[in-house]
Design a protein around this nucleic acid. Structure first.
Lengths: 175, 175
DNA sequence: TTTGTCGTTTAGTATGTACTAAACGTAGTA
DNA sequence: TACTACGTTTAGTACATACTAAACGACAAA
């Protein structure tokens, strides 16, 4: 690697680490992704150890997380027991993958929690009428907001089939 | 408060706490917002202490954070030294406010970090040519992705002026 | 089988942070 | 002035978690 370019790369890696922990992810993830993203060839775990300064254990767990989110991709070479990884360069694909990940876990729980609360409230006659009505109203407003988010999210996840032209259309409306 | 409704409310509060810490925010924030959102009238700090079980200190700092994000709003009553707070019920307004908050802080730093890297790279002639070209290509791809995000984000922030019809249009395209 | 090279897992550690408890500052009230 | 009722700030604590170091398991080669 050219020494002139090294500080620039290092700065980029630091920046991505910052973003990473800003979004609540381990900063090692950001660093690993940054290194892979600026690498012309897939890298092995040991090479990542070399480049990031993290230990193999940390690399192992973070790499698994990044794979699960679709931000990096394992590359296997025949007759080579090492695992190699490369960065996903299609960010829209990565965004979809991340949304899919997050969606399933916690967001759904929140949505169904609200839905459950509403149906319980509607079932509980005999309680204070005005307060009950108020709670139902508030929760339904929240629910419709969640629905909008859900529509948006699942729309984005289907974005590959809709084609990149869709993104342009949306941006044109918003611009 | 009707005792029949209490467990439902409590369940909702717990759920919002969960979401809150899932998104990297203190779970106390979620709880406070939930309590305020389900309250017909604005609540004072001491009432929030009562409802959430947190101490006044924690309430104080979390309430400040929620205000800054635009998720709740202070309400002052004449001839009453207490501060009261109520939840923002326009979630789109809250989203805009949160985006504005996040945008300014870390995202911009990332964007300008990439831009800076690119211009440094373009200035550093004499270095390894093929690698330099590769880095520039990758960073420019990342930059255009950031630009798209930025366009989207600032568009959402201007969404009140564009009107709610815009949201409908966007969702129609995506649906 | 033994040996070496992988990735994974585990136990321990350090760091950040959200909280509690209590002191504090401030502004109305007697 | 002293007193009271607030919200804020600070010092300390508990807890979560991302990491290190090292043991472990799997697998291919000798």
């Amino acid at each position: 690697m050219d020494e002139t370019l090294e500080p620039i790369r290092q700065n980029f890696v630091d920046g991505m680490s910052g973003i990473s922990q800003f979004w609540g992810l381990p900063k090692g993830m950001g660093a690993i992704f940054a290194v892979l993203y600026l690498s012309p060839a897939p890298l092995s775990l040991d090479e990542l150890v070399e480049e990031t300064g993290l230990t193999k254990g940390a690399i192992s767990t973070n790499v698994r997380g990044l794979s699960r989110m679709g931000l990096i991709r394992p590359v296997t070479r025949l007759a080579d027991r090492k695992d190699y990884y490369e960065a996903e360069t299609d960010f829209y694909k990565a965004v979809r993958s991340i949304l899919k990940e997050r969606q399933s876990s916690e967001f759904d729980r929140a949505v169904s929690s609200v839905r459950e609360a509403i149906s319980k409230l509607e079932a509980s006659a005999g309680a204070d009428e005005s307060e009950r009505a108020f709670l139902i109203e508030r929760l339904k407003a929240l629910q419709s907001f969640f629905d909008a988010l859900d529509t948006l999210s699942s729309a984005v996840m289907r974005l590959d089939s809709l084609g990149m032209a869709t993104i342009q259309n949306v941006l044109k409306i918003l611009k």
